[in-house]
Design a protein around this nucleic acid. Structure first.
Lengths: 198, 198
DNA sequence: TGTCGCATGTAAACCGTTACATGATTTT
DNA sequence: AAAATCATGTAACGGTTTACATGCGACA
């Protein structure tokens, strides 16, 4: 459902073609929502069939820009104000960190350094994007909200990586592989806080 | 692919049943990776068929705990160290913020306040989880990395929401709905920085 | 004239959610 | 005895990715 809303959000700001939208998904939106062109084009057709957007005149090189309709604006507002936000998250960087105890600390540190570099580079990109906004325009004022969230989340990841590298460096080394409590027992009961099962 | 690795990560720490894993996906892992029970059970069967995990003796109430095999550990380590991390993100809270200019500022502020409360509540939960870890165990030391990332990201979201509420309060009010540059034109060319198309 | 970037799409495979279905054990 | 929680699953649907396919226009 949210891909539709992402497309309506972009088209509410200005008319765009599928290709333009693909660029956004590789730019600002990259840290917020992602979709590939093969998903975007059919969805635009569906939105047009539902009269939430309308195809404009064809441009050069077979360009097909769409604009939002009044009904599309109504649907977008309703989604914003009268539906629950889906807070489910997926972050592979952090997922991997849960598994880092199975490799030697030095390799874990190497992994964390790579991740830190990735997030630093993204942070630079986001800051550049922020400077390109024209805050006299309402859509850009809202985009600033999104970009600022991206910046703060990336800063959090970079500072986390710094901290994680230091933390992992203090881990006891050696035999991480099989150094877990004997896995033969069937049921480990009793006051078990933390992330261990029951 | 990453669901498999999430399951292997959990089973590397200790034997668990599908139900146990479901609890993790509702707990620590919620901010990092999410999967529903209906996805977990079949995937466990597939992992067992591929000999990356092994079914232990059946427990009470039809409980079926699995343990990781040596081959499973090998696959987990290879994934960690020899494959690229998928950095694609999806965050509906921030996606919605890109669209907030289409509603009156006071409604935008109400939305942001709700989001702030949600993230504050989650942050409290994460901090409690952090205190429940037993740092003498290697898997919990790695879990601390993940939990700390969750905490820092949630803190970033809460402080972002604070800032966003103040920012939106200064937005000019009135006619946000149709206050965008006339949408009739076909192609808006020329030096266009920011998030506008071409 | 060849290559690069613009621009749009289809089909199949894969991943994830929703709706449905069942039964055992513990608590009230 | 009823309700809540534990515990596992299947089938259909919908969303997402991967592989494939095509053609125009600008520039070297």
């Amino acid at each position: 459902m949210s891909l539709r809303m992402a497309l309506l959000t972009l088209l509410a700001g200005a008319p765009r073609s599928g290709y333009d939208i693909g660029q956004e998904f590789d730019g600002v939106l990259k840290f917020v929502w992602h979709a590939k062109p093969t998903q975007v084009y059919p969805e635009l057709k569906r939105l047009a069939a539902d009269r939430l957007i309308r195809e404009q005149d064809e441009g050069s090189r077979g360009r097909r820009p769409y604009e939002i309709t009044d009904e599309g604006m109504r649907v977008l507002r309703t989604w914003l104000l009268a539906s629950d936000t889906d807070h489910s998250q997926r972050n592979e960087t952090v997922l991997r960190s849960f598994a880092l105890w199975v490799v030697p600390p030095q390799e874990a540190v190497a992994y964390l350094r790579e991740e830190r570099e990735y997030h630093r580079a993204r942070l630079r990109g986001m800051r550049a994007l922020k400077n390109g906004l024209n805050l006299r325009l309402a859509p850009d004022r809202a985009a600033l909200l999104g970009v600022e969230a991206g910046i703060r989340r990336l800063e959090a990841m970079v500072s986390w990586a710094d901290w994680a590298i230091e933390t992992v460096s203090t881990w006891p080394t050696g035999m991480a592989g099989t150094g877990r409590p004997a896995s033969g027992g069937t049921d480990r009961r009793g006051g078990n806080p933390g992330i261990r099962p029951r």
